[in-house]
């Protein structure tokens, strides 16, 4: 296997693993927010904001990993 092929393979695998982690994280936040909203519907506005902030932070971390995948894919 050539170096470039290995880099492409790594990029694909990396993107998949990143998605696993980010999906798990955002899913858990969604679950937590949904639970909280069901328990206290009057606080749903604040819960939603907090949920989006946490999801955004996870997304940010996932994007850093994805950028590495993109760099690998372009080698």
């Amino acid at each position: 296997m050539e170096f470039a092929d290995m880099a492409h393979l790594a990029a694909g695998l990396g993107a998949g693993i990143v998605l696993l982690g980010a999906g798990l994280g955002i899913g858990m936040i969604g679950k937590g927010a949904m639970d909280a909203m069901a328990r206290q519907p009057e606080a749903s506005g604040e819960v939603r904001t907090a949920m989006l902030i946490a999801a955004g932070l996870i997304e940010g971390a996932a994007f850093f990993a994805l950028v590495i995948c993109i760099i690998l894919a372009n080698t």
Binding site: G56, E59, G60, F63, F64, L66, V67
Partner: peptide, 13 residues
């Protein structure tokens, strides 16, 4: 620097 970087990448992606 990562804060604005994530901001840009999020919207772009």
């Amino acid at each position: 620097f990562t804060k604005p970087f994530a901001l840009a990448i999020r919207l772009f992606a």
